[in-house]
Each structure stands twice: as structure tokens, then as C-alpha cells.
Design a protein around this nucleic acid. Structure first.
Lengths: 129, 129
DNA sequence: ATGTTTTGTGAAACATGGCTAACTTTTTAA
DNA sequence: TTAAAAAGTTAGCCATGTTTCACAAAACAT
């Protein structure tokens, strides 16, 4: 079963939270994403049955497979947030909207876009400095 | 009731089709979007009750309100497709993925992003020519 | 140790947005 | 003009992803 946008968001939030704290519980994910704990419970069951997370008695953690997706999403998130902030969008709005943009592109397209914009940035900073 | 992504897609497709042909029917929208005519019928009823379209006996057309959204979506679509193509993404993939990106940003953020990238393009073409 | 609070789960409901199938209405062609 | 084809609608179903509410289990504090 393919991962949907919401599944990617859950994985990403587990990843982000696990960098802040030693263990991640359902309730942490719920608070982070602003959904109910019932929603998390349901989502975790699906993600676990598809091998993206493992649920301990009092924590959830990413499998290799889940970690790969989560890292990728977080990388994209940061990329789009930075892009929007560079454009003059507030941090808060950039974060919200970046959350959606991160799910739109294939890996290949994302890399191409990132490369192009990195080149532009380099050439601009050269001319502007 | 706020417009969702699918609603925006329906409006956009009516807009695009109306530039190609004198009248737009449900079936045209269905073929364009690759959904069934039943789905279009349902969607049109909702869009009409929210004042985005008006349905004649044998055509659908955008209201002022609908046209505004449709134009905006189409503009964004073209922007993102061009951006992706510039990055080296194939026309087909760029069109598919641009379809999703166009729904992610607020008007304000989109304008900021567009302005920034336009500036970069200008400064690059200056340095590169 | 036990009572309270926190966390997690399960069931039922709702909204969205698709689908198919059956039907009606309109258009077209013989 | 009438039969067939095309277009549109309606009803019912499905999947996703939420919610609330009730309950179970775990953690914590006194």
C-alpha cells in the first residue's frame, strides 16, 4: 500500500520529535500535528502493518523504511520553508505551506529543482557580492 | 464552504476548456480530468451551490467568483510547470506535479515566490549572456 | 497501595471525493 | 419520426482520514 500525504506527515513528525526527545509517544505526535490521539492510534496501526514504524509498549519508532521516508520529507520541508522565507514569507506561514509542498514532487523532480535553485543562488550571490 | 483542491481543479479545467471551445459540457471536464461524468455532476452541483459555476441546460460556465479562482490556478499551474521544466523535468511530469503544487500556497506567498524567482532569472540571464 | 491523571484504543459517525450501475434526458442519424 | 447513442443525474458503495465518546491500561503522586 502506497504512503499517502498524511502518512508521510506522521513519519516526518516522529522523526522530528525523536531528534528532540529520547522516546516518542502517540500523544506527542498528536500534539505536534494537531490531531486527536485516536487519529494517531489509527494511523500508527496502518503504518506499522506496512512496516514504516514499530510500536513499543510506550513509544513509537521508525523502521529503516520509515526513517528513509521521514528524512526525505524533512529535507524537503526544510528546503521549501527556506525557499519561501527567502522570498519574504513569514516563518510561520512558510512552515505551514512548506508542509504541503513537500508532498508534491517525485524524488527525481525534487532533486532537479533543488539543483537548479542552488545554481541560481550561487550565481546570484556571486554577482551581488 | 471553502474550496478544496479538487474544486479548484474543476474550476481550472472549465477555464482551460473554455479557451479552446465555445461551450464546456460536463463530459468535457470529465475527459479532461480523467474522472467519470458522475463525479463531475456531483462536483458541479456543489460548485454551483457555492456560486462558482452556473449550469445551463447543456453547458457549465464560471461565475465571476469562479473565474477568479480558475485564472489564479491556471497562472500558478503555468508557473510551476515552467519552473520544473526549467529544472529539467519532462513536460509530462512537470504538468502532473505542477497540478499539485498549485494548490499549496496562499496568494501572498505565491506572489512573493514568483517575484523572487523572476529576479533571480533576470540576474542570471544578465550574468549568463 | 490506591486513587487520579495521562495515555492509548475501539466503535461509531461524518466529510470528501472517488466509483459503478441504473435511469432519464437530449441529441443525432437513418 | 423514431430508434440509438451520448450526456447527465441519482443512488448506493467504497476508501481515506478525521472526529467524539467510552473505556482500558499505564504512570504518577500522596
Amino acid at each position: 500500500m502506497a504512503l499517502r500525504e498524511s502518512g508521510e506527515d506522521y513519519l516526518e513528525s516522529i522523526y522530528v520529535l525523536s531528534e528532540r526527545q529520547s522516546t516518542v509517544r502517540s500523544i506527542d505526535v498528536a500534539e505536534y500535528l494537531g490531531v486527536t490521539k485516536a487519529s494517531v492510534s489509527k494511523a500508527m496501526a496502518t503504518l506499522e502493518s506496512n512496516g514504516y514504524v514499530e510500536m513499543g509498549k510506550r513509544d513509537v519508532h521508525l523502521t529503516e523504511r520509515g526513517l528513509e521516508v521521514a528524512r526525505q520529507m524533512w529535507e524537503r520541508h526544510c528546503f521549501f520553508v527556506r525557499l519561501l522565507e527567502d522570498a519574504g514569507v513569514s516563518a510561520e506561514v512558510a512552515s505551514q505551506e512548506g508542509c504541503h509542498m513537500e508532498h508534491c514532487l517525485s524524488e527525481e523532480s525534487f532533486e532537479k529543482l533543488r539543483s537548479m535553485l542552488a545554481r541560481e543562488e550561487t550565481s546570484n550571490s556571486t554577482t551581488e557580492s
